[in-house]
């Protein structure tokens, strides 16, 4: 039986690097996709991915299993992404407005989005960042609405709203074909 994430993290906190390797192997791909699909740039995404894990390493002494390890991990990732966006002068504040359109997909993407998958990818990329984040946390991190709210430091209603609108837009993109 596999050890739970929380136990592995506690073991790493106490100096067990093998526990960290197990934990990293378990979450590396999902976190990597979450980050890369949040920033749209592979180079930036890889840099952020590494920095997030470094933050996890540095924060190990303060780790207490109050919630699922996944929630803690994606909270760190969310905070780091917010810092990244702030540094670039971007803001996420107004995106609570569900009717606010996100950045439009590239026209070239539209032209090439003949297949359903391509349309889906374009729609995902076109989502407002907070809605996309909620969808990715739900899909990659496996977080429920309450955990998404905790990870993104918002209330459950807002988290549920973001996820609902993201899902609706992605469905619409698929059904267009």
């Amino acid at each position: 039986m596999e050890a739970p994430d929380e136990q592995l993290m506690l073991a790493y906190r106490d100096g067990d690097t093998a526990a960290f390797e197990t934990l990293y192997t378990r979450h590396r791909a999902r976190l990597y996709r979450f980050v890369l699909r949040s920033v749209k740039s592979r180079a930036v995404g890889e840099e952020l991915f590494q920095e997030i894990w470094i933050r996890v390493i540095e924060a190990r002494a303060r780790y207490t299993p109050q919630a699922r390890f996944t929630t803690w991990l994606y909270t760190i990732a969310h905070n780091h992404l917010v810092d990244h966006w702030r540094k670039r002068g971007l803001t996420l504040v107004s995106l609570e407005d569900d009717d606010t359109p996100g950045s439009s997909p590239d026209p070239a993407d539209h032209a090439q989005a003949r297949e359903s998958l391509a349309r889906f990818a374009a729609a995902l990329a076109a989502l407002p960042p907070l809605q996309r984040e909620a969808f990715l946390l739900h899909e990659e991190g496996g977080l429920n609405v309450a955990e998404i709210a905790a990870a993104t430091r918002t209330n459950e209603e807002a988290a549920k709203s973001r996820l609902r609108y993201a899902t609706a837009k992605l469905k619409a993109a698929i059904s267009d074909g």
Binding site: A29, R33, L117, T167, I174
Partner: peptide
């Protein structure tokens, strides 16, 4: 939706 998402490029 999940199926479409999983069908995207398997980034690692």
């Amino acid at each position: 939706l999940s199926q479409h998402y999983r069908s995207l490029e398997a980034l690692e």
